[in-house]
Amino acid sequence: MYEHMTYDFILQRMLSRVPDTIDKREGSVIYDACSPAAAELAQMYIELDINYNLSFVDSASGDYLSRKTAEFGVNRAGASPAERKGLFYNSANALMDVPLGGRYAIEDLTFVVKEKISTGTFKMACESAGTVGNEQFGTLLPIDYVANLSRAVLVEVLVPGEDEEPDDQLRERFYAAVNEPPFGGNVADYKQRINAIPGVGATKVYPVWQGGGTVKCTIIAADWEPPSPTLVDEVQTIMDPTDNSGLGIGQAPIDHVVTIVGVSGVTIDVETTLTLAAEVTPGQVQADVEAVIASYLLELRKDWANQQQLIVRTAQIDARILTVTGVEDVAGTMISGSATNLILEADEVPQRGEVTIHG
């Protein structure tokens, strides 16, 4: 808005107000008197432009964006801790129970025993919030002595940890709340409520899917993978507990019988024939090709909630493979044994399987 208010522009405008009978050349008294003031005014306009942009949702960032969206009741989601499954064994290599509240370390992270799932199998909560809690797998070391414990292992992710909501995601959620106001159990209400639950990445809502008053909601986890049964159960309990279905005990309106399910993962095997640069072997590009295919499938999973059904396209895979250094051409690509695009069902998402390269 104030881009034209530069130092030179302001200085010349100031000098234009001085009569021509006075010496206004560089180095003159009037020039040297106006120059510092013009510099300060130019800096003021820069800061004014910054503050102007920080006053609107489409251009604000950081705390300014948080304060602006909060005026409309849309608050930035904070980081949430990961919930993991822990296995505990005694000296006979049999599963054994351990005390709730016990703390165990892996690398720089600490996990706390939160809830018993079955004998020797417990839900573990990471003390550090964020996606960092999703990354480590393997041996857990007890911080305090646990009698008869031989080893402890941290395994699958039950509820993915999430980092603090980034600006773009907060802005998108703000526009959704303003442009699609949630009310009384409409589709927008279900989406916004379920997406706000820690561990949930996105939601599809199917109203009256088994007649009046029934609602089916399909979710994908925050790490853009099919959710664990634990996460599905947690969302079900929050929205409409199965023991009191339709009674309005959860967040769903009275008489709404809500069914929460997770997306299904479909393994995508890719077989491709490549023309490689001189002295480049298929093994040298294998990891990079796998990475670009995995990135493409991740893009599709992130867009799942916005599409009626996902389509894995051979042309898109070919285009991404061509970006790999050492690949000169793609002669043909097969997706799960077929040379055509793979059309998934409404609640299916693609996951990378085997990638076979022919040189």
Rank of each mutant, 00 (worst) to 15 (best):
Trp224His: 13
Val215His: 00
Gln192Arg: 11
Asp240Glu: 06
Ile238Tyr: 15
Val215Tyr: 01
Asp240Ile: 01
Val235Gly: 06
Asp243Trp: 03
Pro207Tyr: 00
Ser245Glu: 09
Val215Trp: 03
Ala222Arg: 00
Trp224Arg: 10
Val232Glu: 12
Gly199Glu: 07
Thr214Tyr: 02
Thr203Met: 02
Glu234Ser: 12
Ala252Met: 10
Ala222Ile: 05
Ala202Gln: 11
Gly250Leu: 11
Val187Asp: 12
Lys204Ala: 11
Arg193Ala: 14
Ile238His: 12
Val208Thr: 15
Thr242Met: 04
Gln236Phe: 06
Tyr190Arg: 03
Val215Leu: 05
Cys217Gln: 09
Glu225Gly: 00
Asp223Thr: 06
Gly199Val: 09
Leu231Thr: 06
Ile197Asn: 02
Val235Ile: 14
Gly213Trp: 03
Tyr206Asp: 02
Gly199Gln: 05
Pro198Lys: 05
Pro226Leu: 09
Trp209Gln: 02
Trp224Gln: 06
Asn186Arg: 12
Tyr190Lys: 05
Ala222Leu: 00
Tyr206Gly: 01
Val215Gly: 10
Tyr206Met: 03
Ala196Asn: 11
Leu231Ala: 12
Ile249Ser: 10
Val205Ser: 03
Pro253Ile: 04
Gly248Phe: 06
Val200Leu: 04
Asp233Val: 01
Tyr190Phe: 14
Gly199Leu: 06
Pro198Gly: 11
Gly185Gln: 07
Gly184Val: 13
Val205Glu: 05
Ser228Ala: 08
Gln236Tyr: 04
Pro226Thr: 04
Leu247Ser: 13
Gly201Ala: 08
Ser245Thr: 15
Ala202Ile: 05
Pro229Arg: 00
Thr203Ile: 12
Gly199Asp: 14
Ile238Gly: 07
Val215Thr: 05
Thr242Ser: 14
Pro207Ser: 02
Gly201Met: 02
Pro229Met: 00
Val232Lys: 05
Val232Met: 06
Gly212Cys: 10
Ala188Gln: 11
Gly248Glu: 08
Asn186Phe: 01
Lys191Gln: 15
Pro207Ala: 05
Gly201Asn: 01
Lys216Cys: 01
Gly246His: 04
Arg193Trp: 15
Val232Asp: 09
Gln210Arg: 15
Val232Pro: 09
Trp224Asp: 13
Gly212Trp: 07
Pro241Tyr: 04
Ser245Asn: 05
Ile197Ser: 03
Arg193Gly: 10
Ala196Thr: 03
Thr230Met: 00
Asn244Lys: 12
Ile238Met: 14
Ile249Val: 11
Gln251Tyr: 15
Pro253Leu: 10
Leu231Asp: 10
Ile220Gly: 05
Gly250Lys: 10
Val235Gln: 14
Val235His: 12
Thr214Gly: 05
Trp224Lys: 00
Gly185Cys: 09
Ser228Val: 08
Ile249Asn: 13
Glu225His: 05
Asp240Phe: 01
Gly185Arg: 08
Gly213Ala: 00
Gly211Phe: 02
Gly250Cys: 13
Gln210Cys: 12
Trp224Ile: 04
Lys216Pro: 07
Gly213Val: 01
Gln251Met: 15
Pro198Ile: 06
Tyr206Lys: 07
Gly212His: 11
Ser228Phe: 07
Lys216Ile: 08
Gln210His: 13
Lys204Met: 04
Pro227Thr: 12
Gln251Leu: 15
Gln251Pro: 10
Leu247Ala: 08
Ile238Trp: 11
Leu247Tyr: 08
Glu225Tyr: 02
Gly248Asn: 00
Val235Met: 06
Gln192Gly: 13
Lys216Tyr: 09
Ile238Lys: 15
Pro198Val: 00
Leu247Ile: 00
Gln210Gly: 04
Val215Asp: 06
Asp233Gln: 14
